[in-house]
């Protein structure tokens, strides 16, 4: 635990030692604002809810999270620091967890930066604060799931661009399989139970429920187990690929 925390601190402060953190946060906040107010028409909708804000999160994350996760292991492998890290007296899981948690905490910081949007809605009406809190939690969990996928992919290659592209595609798959047009198309060629099963792996399905203010154990477990699964995969990938 102590080792994980040491690594966590190093990684998190590492984000702020380079422009990466500031560029990411600024872009994330600008895009959130743009989609919420311009595209989502928050004011015109006349509803005291943050639906038009959270709706965009899966799409924002689709491009922004792989930009964070692409360097997690690809950079360590390219620069050779993975050899340094893995010969320090820490275990593989401590290393993976430390780096993942730092990246996750960093997206959490970016997410917290969106609080003015909540203040806006709070001042204009009386929003359902419980639902907003649940949505924030759901958004954070979804970000973690995207990150875990990206972290695992980042271990496959030394090339950050490749890591980025594969992560985006993989995350896109996890989004699309729950969208009505895609499930509709699948119903034509697959039996219904299979379509339901596949759709239940979509981040949309679970984020939607949470966003409506429903904090169900199934959705929390879904995101939690997605994170655990991909971090486990991350370990297997690194073990197999670190030598190359």
């Amino acid at each position: 635990m102590k080792h994980t925390m040491t690594l966590f601190k190093r990684e998190l402060s590492g984000y702020f030692q380079t422009p990466v953190a500031y560029v990411f946060i600024v872009i994330f906040l600008l895009l959130s604002g743009f989609f919420t107010f311009q595209v989502g028409r928050l004011f015109e909708a006349g509803q005291a809810s943050l639906d038009s804000f959270f709706t965009w999160h899966p799409w924002l994350y689709l491009f922004l999270i792989p930009a964070i996760s692409m360097r997690l292991w690809a950079e360590e492998r390219r620069s050779g620091t993975i050899e340094l890290l893995m010969t320090l007296p820490i275990t593989m899981s401590q290393a993976i967890l430390g780096k993942f948690l730092a990246a996750w905490a960093f997206t959490g910081i970016a997410l917290l930066g969106t609080f003015p949007i909540w203040i806006t809605v709070y001042n204009l009406g009386s929003p359902d604060n419980g639902a907003i809190l649940a949505s924030y939690l759901g958004s954070f969990l979804m970000a973690g799931s995207f990150l875990a996928i990206g972290s695992a992919v980042s271990g496959i290659t030394k090339n950050q661009v490749i890591a980025f592209v594969i992560s985006v595609v993989l995350c896109l798959v996890f989004l699309l399989i729950g969208l009505p047009p895609v499930t509709g198309w699948m119903q034509g060629i697959l039996p219904a139970f299979l379509v339901d099963t596949i759709a239940s792996f979509s981040f949309f399905t679970h984020f939607d429920t949470i966003q409506r203010g429903l904090l169900q154990a199934t959705d929390l477990v879904f995101f939690g187990s997605t994170i655990v699964f991909f971090l486990f995969l991350n370990g297997l990938i690194l073990e197999a690929r670190k030598a190359q």
């Binding site: 190093r10 590492g14 030692q17 380079t18 620069s79 050779g80 620091t81 050899e83 340094l84 010969t87 320090l88 007296p89 820490i90 275990t91």
Partner: peptide, 22 residues
Amino acid sequence: EPVAVKECIGYLPEGAPAYPDM
């Protein structure tokens, strides 16, 4: 006992990798 071994070794990997931003 990989961790015990790593504790008693000092290792300079090829090319002396280190975190460049630090």
